[in-house]
């Protein structure tokens, strides 16, 4: 978990620590992920494109033609978009979506239980593992999440739903309300 200054809101009253991260820089890339395109992306970013439904080195596989790329420290979305645009020959679109997304951290060994309350996903430790990336719904909200560690989950949703999502997570994380299924 990054330091406390990187969070805009934190709730530690529940069974799981729920924290809303401050602006996280990220870029969405839309392009047909052909072999040539994958090679070009690797050249532009220095890391390979992850396999389907996986996240690795800050690159998340969103769809067969879409990646979500976290902008690392010391880099900027503008520079990253410029590098991608220069390398990719096929039709593509790279957009800075930093202001369009809200990012949350769930910390605690019951983090899986909190998500399992609202997402139609098998979150058992053997079914959802480190490196897995899942786009789904949480309650009525379209989200994507992945594990940072065994007891830490990062969740992304649209920025317009940030406050609702935070309150939903705090509510779902209340002490004594864990289903204990996992």
């Amino acid at each position: 978990m990054s330091d406390l200054m990187s969070f805009s809101e934190i709730d530690g009253s529940g069974a799981v620590l729920v924290a809303a991260q401050r602006r996280v820089m990220m870029v969405t890339l839309k392009a047909e992920l052909s072999k040539a395109t994958r090679a070009a992306i690797k050249k532009a970013l220095g890391t390979p494109v992850p396999a389907a439904r996986k996240i690795a080195n800050g690159i998340a596989w969103m769809a067969p033609d879409e990646l979500l790329i976290m902008v690392p420290q010391g880099d900027t979305p503008e520079a990253m978009i410029a590098r991608l645009t220069a390398e990719l020959k096929a039709p593509m679109l790279a957009v800075d979506v930093s202001d369009a997304r809200a990012v949350f951290t769930l910390k605690g060994n019951k983090a899986r239980e909190v998500l399992a309350k609202g997402a139609p996903v098998d979150l058992a430790p053997e079914a959802f593992t480190l490196g897995d990336f899942r786009r789904t719904r949480l309650g009525q909200v379209a989200v994507a999440f992945w594990l940072e560690a065994d007891d830490e989950i990062t969740l992304v949703c649209f920025a317009s739903l940030k406050q609702f999502m935070f309150e939903w997570l705090v509510n779902a994380a209340q002490k004594g309300s864990m289903p204990e299924f996992l």
Binding site: A52, R53, P64, V121, T136
Partner: peptide, 11 residues
Amino acid sequence: PYCGVMAEETE
């Protein structure tokens, strides 16, 4: 068939 996810119908 595109992303390979098996999910229930509400997704």
